[in-house]
Design a protein around this nucleic acid. Sequence first.
DNA 1: GAGTGGTCTAGACCACGGT
DNA 2: CCGTGGTCTAGACCACTCC
Lengths: 248, 248
Amino acid sequence: MDQTLQDTDTNIGFKPLYAQVKDQLIRRLVNGTWQPGMNIPSEQELARQLSVSQGTVRKALDAMTAENLLVRRQGRGTFVAEPEDSRILFQFFRLTADDGPDNDAFPQSRLLRWSQESATEVEAEALAIKSKSPVWRIERVRQIGGSSTIAETICIPTITYPGFEDLTEIPNNIYQLYSSRWGITIAKADEQLKAILCDAGDSATLGCDVGEPLLLITRIARDLESNPVELRCSRCLTNDMHYAVNLP
Amino acid sequence: MDQTLQDTDTNIGFKPLYAQVKDQLIRRLVNGTWQPGMNIPSEQELARQLSVSQGTVRKALDAMTAENLLVRRQGRGTFVAEPEDSRILFQFFRLTADDGPDNDAFPQSRLLRWSQESATEVEAEALAIKSKSPVWRIERVRQIGGSSTIAETICIPTITYPGFEDLTEIPNNIYQLYSSRWGITIAKADEQLKAILCDAGDSATLGCDVGEPLLLITRIARDLESNPVELRCSRCLTNDMHYAVNLP
DNA sequence: GAGTGGTCTAGACCACGGT
DNA sequence: CCGTGGTCTAGACCACTCC
């Protein structure tokens, strides 16, 4: 392991060894050396490979586990996290029924339309691409407990998802598709929430009145290197639902 | 340190040593042995006191630091976290301006009314008290960037805050008041968000039209032992603001 | 029984802050 | 200069899983 950065003098740019180890391991995820579901080498083996102590490897692995990149199972080993429904639901889906939180079912979705268009100013800025770049825009409506609750618009850069036009269907768990088809891992996301009024379009989609209040969720999803790879805009009926946040 | 729980056999109820250490240290916060702002003993000293290794104490301290209960400063020591404006703002206030996030200023508030009343069913359940128990209900309006943005109703059990009636004013940072006056530390909070329409009361308070969309935030704040000690209901104008969430 | 992660210990050196 | 937290190492024992 490169320890030159640890040298005394000029601590500008200093990075602890465990952080360097973590960067190395993330690189293996980024370049596909380690695929989702894989059993990665043991702590001892990684310590040998990188010429650091087991404790330092452990600190890096623990940090990555906390970020939902790895899953550790005592007696079995350490595995690359997969985008299964339950994890994605837990990590990224914060809408819950007011009464019994039936968080076990992934919300069904019905595709309304999808086409290639050119990015608006706002979309381009969010996705860090040039204005008017080609993007896929996908519109769908999601059901929770049998009723249409969310009108969703997903916007992704065409260049990031080559061959997207060949798809015949869009799965409920689109992050699993990103992973299996393009090797893109959604590692984190930033959301911004506002209250808005239902317009004519969403009224038709959701089967509610124009002027009803909707919870607007604007999400920028990022890959392992924090590049924005998806912009999602959800308009949610929150009569029997709420968005749950734990602080901290 | 009591290590009996670690014994082999019957691992029901097993707790790692560092977790037991953490519980011990939290007890010192709860019973006031350690006050906000205090410099707590060094890792070495705590290890001696509790008869565990420094590494085990460190793991407990790191966990408490991650929960914003402690602040560690290299070369100086470890301190009990204080409810200063900047920390409370960062930890519990997620509303931000759409453009420049001017997150340095604590939002000013204007007191509308406060009185002792009896808890509704909903309030009683949220605060884990009996229905119709006496509570203080405080209503105020908060300004951000000079304009009234949030109508806020705070509900706290009378019994938890003895002498509340003697107060002559309510500070902007009410969590600092809870801490200094009653030794109550707000350690975490759960929030539920919905979109609603502005009613006549909030219209007058916020100076907006009836029927405008508002972001409704219902917060249950908890003390060090996870007891609910405040119920807060905020109705926010989100025309130029948004509620920011990072996932994870 | 062999191998894994989970925990605990002991000791070392470093950078930082105050004396 | 000393004491602090921050990092790194080496080795030990445990519980769990699979063979």
